[in-house]
């Protein structure tokens, strides 16, 4: 286990000076994940906040080879990079062992990029796909995605006289990725940096495709103070809204079990996007959210038990 001091001394792939907002979760995820790659690293990026804010021509924040082609196809683009790697290695044109990591937002991963991600995972390309999940299309101005939590106020699921925000529960993408029977799938949060780093190491070491779903607050879209990013991550984990777990060759392991599971309202009330839920009349919505969190958490514990028995 590396100390924070050791980790901070590792080479930086994402240089400072990029244009992501203060307090943005995405660059924290990137800097933590990329530290775990041993040796040369190629980054593929889907269109989204991370991509537009780090590569404004003629500048780039990336100290490592990086490619962005479009929004829905980062996994397919990276599949081609991985194929090229095998071909060129076989023909003696590349000698190093390399790592490939993909970063896509939740829109580029859960929604428009879902098919290309599924394809790349099924083909088991040796790459690490990281979704930085900020629960909406932030780059285009906070529109709902299938990762947006129930009750969230977004510009396409706005709160109104007859609307409490997004009506549907989130898609559980980590489960869907685990169902691809890939060597490694995990969920991480920047608040638990050591857990995150260890999972990233395992993902890079996996013998094939790996998927990491990373919680990545967006102070602008979630309406919280920029200084509270890590605190909100912690609340998401402690309320079991965002459980930390991994699935290795089909075996589930919940890597962090809160000693005391906090009510989900602690997580919700810290963010402006849920503030309307605390107005009279929305009690049922809060209840439904809590019920769903409980159900999913119990299910996860059962999966852990079953898959290890």
């Amino acid at each position: 286990m590396a100390s924070l001091k050791e980790l901070s001394a590792l080479p930086e792939v994402l240089a400072p000076g990029h244009r992501l907002c203060a307090g943005c979760g995405a660059p924290i995820v990137v800097r933590m994940i990329t530290r775990a790659a041993k040796g040369p690293l190629v980054v593929a990026n889907a269109t989204g906040c991370l991509e537009v804010s780090t590569t404004i021509y003629p500048y780039t924040s990336w100290n490592t080879p990086w490619i962005h082609t479009a929004f829905e196809n980062a996994a397919a683009t990276a599949s081609g990079v991985e194929a090229a790697y095998h071909a060129l290695k076989r023909r003696g044109k590349v000698d190093k062992d390399i790592n490939i990591v993909v970063f896509g937002g939740d829109g580029g991963t859960y929604d428009i990029g879902f098919q290309s991600l599924s394809g790349a995972m099924e083909r088991n390309h040796k790459l690490v796909y990281v979704c930085y999940d900020n629960g909406a299309y932030m780059n285009t101005g906070i529109q709902r995605s299938s990762a947006t939590p129930k009750g969230a106020n977004t510009t396409t699921s706005p709160v109104g006289k007859v609307s409490y925000g997004k009506r549907e529960n989130r898609k559980d993408l980590t489960e869907i990725m685990a169902a691809h029977n890939i060597p490694y799938a995990a969920q991480v949060s920047p608040s638990h940096w050591n857990d995150l780093y260890q999972k990233a190491e395992k993902a890079f070491a996996a013998n094939g495709a790996a998927f990491i779903n990373a919680f990545a607050p967006c102070p602008r879209g979630w309406r919280h103070d920029t200084k509270d990013t890590i605190e909100i991550c912690r609340l998401a984990v402690d309320t079991c809204f965002w459980p930390l777990y991994e699935v290795v060759d089909g075996k589930y392991r919940v890597t962090y079990k809160p000693r005391e599971k906090k009510p989900v309202t602690e997580f919700l009330k810290a963010q402006g996007r849920f503030s309307h839920l605390f107005q009279p009349g929305n009690e049922e919505v809060l209840e439904a959210i809590q019920k769903e969190v409980d159900r999913k958490w119990e299910e996860l514990l059962k999966l852990e038990e079953l898959s290890n028995s």
Partner: peptide, 28 residues
């Protein structure tokens, strides 16, 4: 042949992967 063949899940991905491979220096 010793071509690395990627049997993608769509033409959008076919062109995306071809682009990724070409950018990586492969004849794709």
């Amino acid at each position: 042949v010793d071509t690395q063949m990627v049997t993608v899940e769509s033409e959008h991905s076919a062109m995306s992967a071809t682009i990724g491979a070409s950018a990586a220096g492969a004849r794709a």
